[in-house]
Design a protein around this nucleic acid. Structure first.
Lengths: 243, 243
DNA sequence: CAAAACTGTGTCCGTTGGATACAGAGTACT
DNA sequence: AGTACTCTGTATCCAACGGACACAGTTTTG
């Protein structure tokens, strides 16, 4: 009930300023010891190592040799710090590969996005729900849409394709990250096979699929598989639009 | 560092027992006042209303007229409570629609999954990362794989298709949930257009796409669009496999 | 040179998840 | 039946976390 108050819009405005506004001109007091990117990088290092649960204002402050409360001079709160970390971690969108059609560009785009999420698994949980997007995040979106201009799709369809690809990259990164926690040997073992043992009659199709997949090296190709299916579907739509 | 200790495997084992083992036989002491499903339902009600941040052991206990510590007699901790809530909220997989091919079955499956995530938005953030899956969750997966048996795809491909569809349903639910927080009028306004105002030269393709999408009623069709593209791609693969 | 503004710090508080010890209730064994 | 055992719910306590607030030091502007 208090989460939808008037404070919410004020928080949004402050966050928008934090992400979009360039640091303003000459100040009056002493020079700041820290910078926003440095704080974000410190937070990213901690979250990369110990996840979002390990991210504490205290630890960020310690890694920067300041007190916890010093951070609040730069960042309104922890939520805004995480938003800033996302923006820095995702980084600027990479240049499109030369001499590539829309399909090659989108393929590269999705794989690059997958890589970012793989490098920063905490970003998977941090990017759910409504939030204010930063310049880098919008830059990535812009690149995907730019790749689709001239294909005959209208704006809504282009946005839908971008969302579809982003979702696939996100989800695959999540699945791969989930698999590698714990001992690698127990990854899929404790994930599925151990659960299915003794209940073979309840999940016949699942058992068959897992056994069949175990013979092939299927786990590493899930990203390629989904990407091919999605882009095949988009290609079909484009070809239908341009007979 | 302490998160990958030997306690982790013990936690996993306890959670597996919590989700999979049926309540055992006759007890010795007094009758328990609560049941696991009742606790899960209470937690779900709170999380549905106020999100995962609003979910507190205190509040769950209050809504059940017990003390906070009484809950720890049933659930090892908050993480396990959330896992139980996921399992109860997702529910048993619905029966497949009669007289439907693999495509119709998967289409229905994805939409049903989308509905579940829409009803319980907190499940979006709760289902990221490595976790122990429950019987219901595996039952859903089984249904998707069962729909694909006989299509000529091998096990790994069937799993990949299921993951692809699950990811799309998840992501669309997330996007729709993110849009509807705050006032509906400001939904996409504060989400994108407000940010783009004044920076038209940086995001030309984005601006064009958003303007073009505003004329059509594109937002509601993102689920259908992605689903059609994915299933088209899968159909193409199946047809290629069976010439 | 004084005033103003900004930075970093120390201290304090509310809330949260969780551990532990204890009192009562119901069942099993003799 | 009666006793001992075991399980339940409770009360109390603690550490960690996010954040508010007032204060002291530093640098720029008049």
């Amino acid at each position: 009930m208090d989460r939808a108050g008037a404070d919410d819009v004020a928080d949004k405005r402050r966050l928008r300023e934090l992400l979009w506004d360039t640091p303003s001109g000459p100040r009056r007091g002493p020079r700041p010891t820290l910078t926003l990117p440095a704080i974000a990088r410190a937070g990213i290092a901690i979250a990369d190592a110990d996840g979002l649960d390990g991210l504490t204002m205290q630890r960020v402050a310690e890694s920067l040799d300041v007190t916890k409360m010093a951070l609040y001079r730069y960042v309104p709160g922890k939520a805004e710090l995480v938003a800033l970390m996302i923006e820095v971690a995702i980084g600027e969108p990479p240049p499109p590969p030369a001499d590539a059609g829309w399909r090659g560009q989108l393929d590269d785009w999705a794989r690059q996005m997958f890589d970012r999420f793989r490098r920063h698994p905490w970003a998977l949980t941090a990017t759910v729900g409504a939030r204010v997007m930063g310049p880098n995040e919008l830059g990535w979106l812009e690149r995907a849409l730019a790749a689709l201009t001239g294909t005959g799709l209208h704006g809504g369809e282009m946005l839908d394709v971008a969302v579809l690809l982003l979702g696939h990259a996100r989800n695959l990164a999540q699945q791969v990250s989930a698999m590698e926690t714990g001992t690698p040997e127990q990854a899929l073992e404790s994930g599925l096979a151990a659960l299915l043992r003794g209940r073979e009659e309840c999940f016949p199709a699942l058992i068959a699929a897992v056994e069949s997949a175990a013979t092939h090296a299927a786990q590493d190709q899930a990203l390629d598989f989904g990407l091919s299916r999605i882009l095949d579907g988009v290609d079909l739509l484009i070809k239908t639009r341009h007979p």
